[in-house]
Design a binder for these strands. Sequence first.
RNA 1: GGCCGGUUGGCUCAGUUGGUUAGAGCGCUGCAUUCACAUUGCAGAGGUCGGGGGUUCGAAUCCCUCACCGGCCACCA
Length: 752
Amino acid sequence: MDKIYDHKKYEEKIYKLWEKSGAFTPKVDNNKKPYTIILPLPNASGKMHTGNVLMIAIEDLLIRWKRMQGFSALWIPGTDHAGIETQVTFERHLKETGKSRFDFDRQTLYKMIWGFVQENKHLIESQIRSMGASVDWTRYKFSLDPDIVDTVLTTFEKLHADGLVYKDDYMVNYCPGCGTTFADLEVVHKERKDPLYYVRYPLVNKGKSEPDYIVVATVRPEPIFVDTHLAVNPKDKKNNWLVGKKVKNPLTGKDMEIIADDFVDPKFGTGIVKMTPAHDKVDLEVAKKHSLPINKALDLNGKVLPEGGKLTGLNVVQARKMAVKILGDKGLLEKVDRNYSHSVAVCYKVGHDIEPTILPNWFVKVATLKKPAHDAVKRGKVRIFPKWQEIKYHRWMESMLDWPVSRQAVWGIRIPVWYNLKQNPKIALSFINKKGKTVSGPVDELTKKYSLAEIEKGLQTLIAPHDAQYRISKKSPGKGYLQETDTFDTWFSSGQWPLVTLGYPASADFKNFYPTDVLETAWEILRLWVSRMIMFGIYLTGKSPFKDVYLHGVVRALDGKKMSKSLGNVINPDDYQTEFGTDALRMGLVIGNANGHDFNFPRDKVTSAKNFANKIWNMGRFMKFMFEKCETKVPFYSPDLTSNLKKEDKIIIKKLNTLVNKTDSSLEKYRFADAADAIYHFMWHELADKYIETMKNRADKDIALSVLRHIYLNCLKLLHPFMPFVTEAIWQELKPLRKKKGLLITSLWPRS
RNA sequence: GGCCGGUUGGCUCAGUUGGUUAGAGCGCUGCAUUCACAUUGCAGAGGUCGGGGGUUCGAAUCCCUCACCGGCCACCA
């Protein structure tokens, strides 16, 4: 054995040894209790960040612990196509070549992204390996594997058959930059200064002592041309005389009515609000309540529609300037407040302003799905650790609205809805024709000029009105049909991950390993992911997909702030892995974080864990050396030796038992740092500093060595889930000293 | 605005149901080197547990309140 433990010499070799041994691949075995974890699927073309490392460290330690306890321990790895996230990354590469996604039909684009992902996906896989993750690669899944896609589509069919799917116009967060909609959860609000325009609305038929006009404050004057109503608060004494009055639209001159609704804040601006229901969530609700017309001002590229007069075809920024100019020319601009600061919804991917707009969307009704999922946690059938995170789950479940599952993206599982073109002449199509030109228009016009084959081949997007006739089918129902171009929200498929990875509904794996034991992930995706999995699991199988949820904290940068590229404080785990070793990185993260709270990257703990690896390596080296030197045969430890034991022997044996108990009970409670700390302290400060130092002076070396071997080998077992490589490396080096010759990974967990 | 966490030695954090001198890692100070390991050993310094009030025989721990730091959610015409 070398004087110093060199992780680079061992890690790769040992991982291969484990994988070859079949230890990662449990069989369905009725004599063994199953223990299952599904790896939260990283982005297939992504890269490992510190959060992933912590996740793998924790899950691997749970799996190794249970495997050694004799469970049929299964840990399924997988990666996610990660819909929009991947598509946006790809488009950035595309931009470098001077192209954009609009230059391609969706089939071609899909193939290109597929190729891009294939090129990059090995990276995350090799990183998972290098972390020592004892995942079962034979059961590896990618979220676009054909069997997974098929199950996801079946689920959609079932939801539809159960009346839980509907199509509706919906206020979506539309990002003209990404060309797609985002869920509320994916929208970021940013504080920003924007001019607040005070616009004059001339009164129609003004009475005596009434002003010529009233003033409305707005940051968005450009869609005024579609507005038909203003609103005031009925309790607002200053303004409620206006209810029922008419004013002229400052852009079009058409009459507008003033309605009363208490959503208006009398203290804001002038206390009078303009209503733009097609582009504002609150306005839409109020408009529905009062049965007001809902007129769109913008198309899906964020350009003003033909009804906009001089604004037509302009984007939002240009249109705003133009509208301000027109209003100014007419003398209808009272003033501009340039110090107005408000929060703006922006796209979390590209930072473009979100344009709220109405669009036909596929929805899943959540009321019936969420009730049992909510109850499961309330009744303790699913336990959330740490407990205080539970409240986030409950609050989310209480407020969860119907789930828009369609995304206007190419990269994903295409929604299995088909439209017969003859039945639906008003479907809006956009496609690239034979000459490479983009053509858009309604079906009835386009089919006069183009063959269906040409349209289908070059198809980019299809927007069906909300009352369009459709069929649900995995395959084309026949000629004359076009498929929906929207794809599913990534969480729609990953929400079924525990089911699809296990081969739901009929496989032997599914019957044996479902429900899984624990879902371990970052608390950040409790709502997006965990809640959806519980909903789908119960809906499809009657059982929650896991019994426990453990939420680890977010690893922050060294400066205590969230890691971000713009702050330049991102920690690359590779660097630490190379310098200190995988074991040190894993142990450092686990021991530096106790209760699922967010924590700063524990650099000092990683350093000390590296020293610890070397310490135990040298303990093994010392033992080997002593065994070679010892002239008498060292008996294997057993209770028969009790009469030969000294006081210090009995003490250390007792302390080992305590340690085993402590380790088990801590891990049962998901208190990983407690267990790690106890093992660390015992091995270093009890075994090395005290017991070994004392035994150096003993005459009965054979007895002391017998006890030392017993204690030390058991410690290696206890430590193995935390620091798998170095413990296995020592275990192999000490083969001549051991009774059984197998691997540490499959050795039997100590009993107290 | 609503909510959740945090505030413990120089730094980063533990402290599970309130119980004798509040722990760890790193850092710091002194001593030790052909002894498995200097990625080491031994010894040591360093904390009125954010402020105030309360409950209790007893509070870092429970209650109230204030302050500050993180974070989440909602609204913002």
